[in-house]
């Protein structure tokens, strides 16, 4: 059994999450839309789930969410983003495993994962009465957040996927081998098409 996070992948994931976290906290806090900051960390987790499958996505989501819960600007109950990003990583991995990571395919996945993530975070907030805001406000913020995430996903997800492909160039995406065996002619075509993440 290969480890979930071989060292290069661990380093890449940690770097991606850290950069996303710092950028989200400092750069994108200046570029808010109605006060909503794009969830860069969430998008990194989405990309991880797309590239490495739902298990890696789940674990990385937990870790990244934990960082997000504990890193300075955060003041909500710790564990909320961890739970939300776990769901994100899992969803991204599951949905992503059914197709090829082209933009037309991973963008809906990113949107869905973003929706799931912000929803889980909002729901935990509702349950814990953490931010004492109404459902209407939550929905408004969530809508803006998902829209922002989808827009930012166009940049963040390819970058992260490229990073993962760079640190593990020999590695084929987690979900591809079975498809190739099942549908040989198309797999051949897929193989000649070159790297997936290009």
């Amino acid at each position: 059994m290969s480890p979930l996070f071989p060292v290069p992948r661990l380093v890449a994931a940690l770097a991606a999450v850290s950069v996303a976290l710092v950028l989200q906290a400092s750069l994108f806090s200046h570029l808010t839309v109605q006060g909503v900051v794009p969830d860069l960390v969430l998008l990194v987790v989405v990309a991880t789930g797309l590239v490495h499958g739902s298990e890696v996505g789940l674990v990385l989501g937990f870790g990244a969410g934990l960082l997000l819960d504990l890193a300075p600007p955060a003041d909500h109950y710790a564990g909320r983003w961890a739970l939300a990003l776990m769901a994100v990583g899992y969803v991204a991995g599951r949905l992503g495993s059914s197709g090829h990571p082209r933009v037309s395919q991973w963008l809906p996945v990113a949107a869905a994962a973003s929706f799931v993530g912000t929803s889980v975070f909002a729901l935990t907030g509702l349950v814990l009465r953490d931010p004492a805001v109404g459902v209407g406000e939550l929905l408004r913020v969530e809508t803006v957040a998902v829209a922002l995430d989808v827009a930012l996903a166009l940049v963040v997800v390819p970058l992260t996927m490229r990073l993962f492909a760079k640190v593990e160039p020999h590695r084929v995406l987690a979900f591809t081998p079975r498809k190739r065996v099942e549908r040989a002619p198309r797999a051949q075509a897929t193989l000649t098409r070159g790297p997936r993440d290009a």
């Binding site: 789940l58 909320r80 961890a82 739970l83």
Partner: peptide
């Protein structure tokens, strides 16, 4: 992991 999250929130 979910339990860890819940524990963390509870804590």
């Amino acid at each position: 992991l979910v339990l860890a999250c819940v524990t963390l929130m509870t804590l």
